[in-house]
Every structure is written in C-alpha cells, then in structure tokens.
Design a protein around this nucleic acid. Structure first.
Length: 645
DNA sequence: ACGCAAATCGCCCTCTGCTGGGCCAAC
DNA sequence: AGTTGGCCCAGCAGAGGGCGATTTGCGT
C-alpha cells in the first residue's frame, strides 16, 4: 500500500524490529537486498536498538511505536530519532526538536503516515508518503508517533549508497549505520538474525507534477548476503515499490506450522519439530526421564552422577556445560558484562537480564494477574504476587514458627526478634537510634527534611524549615516565663496568672462577697474570707510548738518561732490538729486533678516564685486586713498555708 | 545426524524500599 | 481521656544476581 505525497526530499527511517499483534508468518524474501519484515514470536513486545547504539524502544501489542529511527533529509543528512510513546488520547503538539508522525489505519491496513512536526527541522517536509507491508502492523485506528531528533547531519557512508543501486533508478536508498555492537543489538532486539537488519526504506522518485515523491517501506535488509544463495527457492517476493527491479532470488525456508519457527536447514527444522511431537526416545535409566537428544540425556545423567566436566579455575564450582562455566566466570570472576543498556549504565552478563532491565525503562508489564489489576515485569514477581491472593506463606521462622510470604520478610523478622546483634541505624542529625533503615528514612523525612514553607513556633515568631529544629526550639519555651508585666518585674508562665496580677496595678476586684459585699482580686481570697468570716463551722488550725506549747495559726509563723525556740519543727504531713471544714474531693483522675491544678496554679500566682521578693504586692487588699490570718505582709507560703485550712 | 557453543527460558534467590497498622509515650 | 507523632513490624513490590535446563545455529 502506498500513499504518495509530493516532497522535495526523501526520508528514511530504520525499523529495527516490529512485533505485530497477531502472529505473523515469517516471510523473508530478498530482492536486491530488500526483504520482508521479519516477524518474531515472543511476548508481544518490541525492543529495538538504534543504529547509533543510543536508543531503544519497545512496541507493546496494540500500541506500537516506531523504534528509534533514523531519518535522512538527504544523502548527506540523517536524523536520529527516538520514538516517544503516546496514545491517541494524549497527543501534544511536537516540541522543538521533535517530529510527530500520525499513522492511520483502515481495515487493518496502514493508510497514511504524516509528519505533524511543527518542531521538526525546517528543511523537513510536513508530509511523506509511506509504503508498508500490510501485515506488518496491527495498528490502532489512529496512532501518533513522536520522535525526538537526537542526531542530525550524519554523513552517510559512501559505500552504503551502493545498496540503492538495485532499486529503481530514481530510488535512493541510504543504508543506515550498521549496529555498533551486534551482540548487544541482538540482545536488545531479542532476535537472532545475523546481519539481517530491518529498515524503513525511503525511495524518492519523480512525481507526477515534477516534484519528488517519497515512499517509505518497512523492510529487512540482509547485509551479508548481497548475492542470492543459489539453489534456494523464494517463498514470497518483496513488494516494495512498483519502480523496483523485480530481481527475485531463490531461498528455501522451512516453516513450522505449529509455531513461528523457521529455519533454512532441514536438519534444524526436523529437530525443532520434535519439540512439538514430544518424541523423547532417550530415557534416563536412573530416573526414567526422557529426552529428545542423546546430548540432553547425557547432560541430565551428569546431574545424577555429579559429573561436571567444566570446572572453574577460580573457585570450586563446576558445570555440566562450558556455557555455564563461561557465564559463571562472568558473574563471579571476570565481571564481564557484554550486554549494556543504552539508556543507563546498566550492564548484564546475560541478554535476558538486559531484556528484563529494559522493562524498567519502558514500564512494560507483560505478566497480568488473573485476579486483580496487578501486572508484573517478570514471571517470578507475578508468582510472588499470587501469594497475596492465595494466602500462602511458605517461609516459616524456625524459632517462633511465624510464617511469611517472602523470605526477606522472614529474614528481617529473625534478625529483629531472635538475633542478639541487632543492626541499629543512628540518625546523623539527632542521634536517634532506629532499628530499620527504612524507618530511619521515615524519621529523616518527617523530622529532618527541609520544607520550603517555614513552620512558625507556636510561642514566638521564630520559624524553621525542619520539624526537628522547630520541636527543639519549642521545648525551650516550656519553662519560660513568657508573660511579663509591663508595670513591674513580675513574670509568669500562664496568661491567666498575669491577668490576676494586673489587677494589683489596676485595683480591680471582681470577686465580691455575697454576705458583706467585700471585694477581692482573687477567687481564692474570697473563699478564704467566706470561710473565715461567714462559716460558723470554721475552726482554724493551730500549729503548736512541741517545745514550748505555743500555738500558731500559720505554719510559717510556727517555723519562724521554732528557729528561735530551737525545736527544728518539721511540717507535719497531716496535722492532727488540722481540721478541715470541707473535705477534699477524692482524687478523681481527670476533673479533680484539673481542679487541683487550677487551685494550685491560682495559689502559685501569689507564691514567692512569681511574686518578686517573695512577698505579696503591697496593696494586697483590704480583705487581708479584715482577716485575722491575712495581712499584707504575708508571704506566699503563708497564704498557701492559709488556703490549706 | 551429531556435537558444540551460544542463545534462550525459567526459576529462585537477595537486597532494597515503601506502606500501613499497632503500640506507646508525650502532649 | 483524647490526640498526635514516633517507632516497630509485617506485607508487598521493584530490581537485579545466579544458575539449571532447554533450544537453536552451525560446523563437521
């Protein structure tokens, strides 16, 4: 199918691997080096490697992307592009340095490919024509592909142009740069095809109206076999452009009907067929397990006998096959990692590991949980995940028999619960000791992480960008007498204390006695007054000097007397002579405690601690004068003592 | 067809990090 | 007594290492 759109220049895109949604038969044909797209069976994914070894992309089923591609504006210019996955719903205008391609399909066939690229280089045309093999893509109705222009002005090697000779005279084919590291390329592509590379071929030819037309063809190019292999019959011929020469070569391919396997050798093909028939004539005499080949049986028997002919020279390990030894040595000794990720610094010993790693870039999750929406990137994670549905807990602690879904969880459990040498993690900022590294991380995040919005101290205007410093700062306010009287040197911790204190300056006396209309600044003073003057049951406590027998109404007076008398009287915890006119409430945990606290706080208001000089303010009030026990010279302790009565 | 080596598949493992519930002490 | 926040803990997923077993390409 071709859509020819006039263009001044031609464009070519290298297509490294395509994975159609449906299994396609491999139909390789050669026509002047142009082959049909090779289709690979597998997990329905496409992973590709740019020719410059710098890019790769994948094409999941149903949302194909063009692989990192190379586009040439002319013979002397190749633009190296990176495919960017977009869905039809989130197409955005291309940015500078991006080229956007719209692919449309109708009736399963690719209908058009259009550059939408506003950000494309000025010399690029807005539209190109394309010729795809219809069965190559299983596309969405409309797909947009975006490419980052990563490289341009790459001069095409002169010898590459020879490849275009066999095309139509007006057709120009530019061979893309060969893969820099074929092994890596193959690993990332997941293909094993030797030198066969697949391209978007671009052909330019005179259009009907004098301007050039360009045609893109997804094709495979066999770089080794410039000449056809004699004696092989063609299976199918390439259909690239009608202007191409129809030089068809003969090449026989044996195709498996049961799977996608093909082989050019009958022997390989026959051997492959045995994988489907289940024909396993070679039986292990030790375990009766059957194998297809003698080699497989021999390797198997070696596992019984312990015969491992390939011994590692650097350790005690030995292996059945040489390949295993090579791999082992790479893992353990040489650390050679030939499979390198082109997107990051990751490198691996095995191609399959690189393939798995690439999924962390692409986000591909081929393994779908049948019971929930979870999908994993490899089979083991899915299997592990399935335990969350089955409830299986295969790992048991040998000490307490607790069971766990993962071995690592059990290991941590044993370490934390049954080990004496617990690892501890110390916070570098506050010396906190935390058992788990992950919890230390949480600690650091919660307490020591910098926060852009400064947090204000609740007591002062100070602000801090981390919670730890804030909390430490706020603790400094804990015993601080933050409330300072502006009329004298008095200071206190609570605002309500200051309120009462201020009355000593204003003369305000809001507490009036209902019996005699006498007013007081503090409720406690009113209570003392009421008990003393209006309560008929009131009996004052008498503190008696044990030496001379003299009685005192206040404990402090007795103390003062005792210093002179020399008795050294200690304050009794509960004076037997003390008589309470009112029993205290039992110590109810909350309310009583709070009332006591309130009383204590009010009392503390006039305690020596808060009253400068340890004495009450001079104008303590006439109420004191009215009382036999109260006077303006009373110390705080005296009043406390009085209140206790 | 055989045999070797490379490629590939598959499984299991460890390490790591995040999350949420329970517990507890401070507020 | 209720709230808040830190710590402990198990659950769970991401990423990667390692190796056994099988399949495939290809020389003989």
């Amino acid at each position: 199918m071709e859509f020819l759109i006039p263009s001044e220049q031609f464009t070519k895109i290298k297509e490294l691997e395509l994975m159609p949604e449906k299994a396609l038969e491999e139909e390789k044909e050669e026509e002047d080096g142009v082959c049909r797209v090779k289709e690979h069976s597998g997990a329905g994914e496409l992973e590709a490697q740019s020719t410059h070894g710098a890019l790769q992309a994948k094409i999941p089923e149903g949302e194909q992307e063009l692989a990192p591609a190379t586009m040439a504006e002319s013979e002397q210019l190749i633009l190296t592009l990176q495919a960017v996955h977009v869905t039809s719903g989130d197409v955005e205008p291309p940015q500078q340095g991006e080229v956007q391609v719209l692919l449309q399909r109708a009736s399963g066939c690719l209908q058009s490919l259009v550059w939408l690229g506003e950000g494309s280089p000025p010399s690029l045309h807005q539209c190109v024509a394309i010729s795809f093999q219809e069965e190559v893509y299983s596309m969405q109705e409309t797909e947009v592909m975006q490419f980052h222009v990563l490289q341009e002005s790459v001069t095409v090697a002169s010898e590459d142009s020879e490849l275009a000779v066999s095309l139509a005279e007006s057709t120009e084919l530019i061979k893309l740069e060969k893969a820099q590291k074929e092994e890596q390329l193959l690993a990332e592509e997941g293909v094993s095809g030797k030198r066969e590379e697949q391209f978007f071929l671009v052909e330019a030819r005179p259009g009907d109206e004098g301007s050039d037309e360009i045609v893109l063809t997804i094709s495979s190019l066999n770089m080794e076999e410039d000449k056809p292999v004699p004696g092989q019959a063609p299976i199918e011929k390439a259909k690239t452009t009608e202007n191409q020469k129809k030089t068809k070569e003969v090449k026989q391919t044996f195709r498996c009907d049961a799977c996608m396997f093909t082989s050019s050798r009958i022997s390989s093909f026959n051997r492959h067929l045995k994988t489907h028939t289940g024909d396993k004539p070679h039986v292990c005499h030790l375990c009766l397990k059957a194998f297809r080949t003698v080699t497989l049986l021999r390797n198997h028997v070696n596992t019984h006998t312990g015969t491992r002919p390939y011994k590692c020279g650097d350790c005690d390990m030995a292996f059945v096959t040489s390949g295993e030894l090579v791999r082992h040595r790479r893992y353990k000794h040489t650390h050679e990692k030939p499979f390198k990720c082109s997107m990051c610094t990751y490198a691996s010993v095995e191609a399959s590991k690189l393939k798995r790693h690439i999924r962390s870039h692409t986000g591909e999750r081929p393994f779908q949980c049948p019971l929930c929406s979870y999908a994993s990137k490899d089979t083991y994670k899915l299997k592990r995940h399935m335990r969350t549905h089955s409830g299986e807990k295969p790992y048991e602690c040998q000490v307490c028999h607790a069971r766990f879904t993962q071995s690592g969880t059990m290991k941590i459990h044993v370490l934390q619960k049954h080990s004496e040498n617990l690892p501890k993690y110390e916070c570098p900022h506050c010396a906190a000791i935390i058992a788990r590294k992950s919890d230390l991380r949480v600690h650091l995040r919660n307490l020591h992480a910098y926060r852009a919005a400064a947090m204000e101290c609740r007591y002062c205007p100070a602000a801090f960008h981390d919670r730890y410093t804030l909390v430490q700062h706020q603790k400094t306010h804990k015993n601080e007498k933050r409330f300072k009287c502006e009329h004298c040197g008095y200071a206190c911790r609570q605002e309500r204390h200051m309120t009462v204190h201020i009355r000593t300056h204003t003369g305000e006396k809001p507490f009036a006695c209902l019996s005699c209309s006498q007013c007081f600044r503090q409720k406690q003073l009113l209570n003392v007054h009421v008990r003393k003057c209006h309560d008929t049951n009131f009996t004052p406590t008498v503190h008696e000097c044990p030496r001379c027998g003299r009685g005192f109404s206040r404990w402090s007076n007795l103390q003062r007397h005792a210093e002179k008398c020399g008795s050294g009287q200690e304050k009794p915890s509960t004076s037997k002579k003390r008589r309470r006119t009112k029993k205290r409430k039992p110590a109810v945990p909350k309310t009583a405690a709070k009332e006591d606290e309130a009383a204590a706080e009010e009392a503390s208001l006039i305690s020596g601690e808060q009253c400068p000089g340890g004495a009450l303010p001079m104008d303590f009030g006439a109420a004191l004068a009215e009382s036999e026990d109260l006077d303006e010279g009373m110390t705080c302790e005296m009043i406390l003592d009085l209140m206790d009565k």
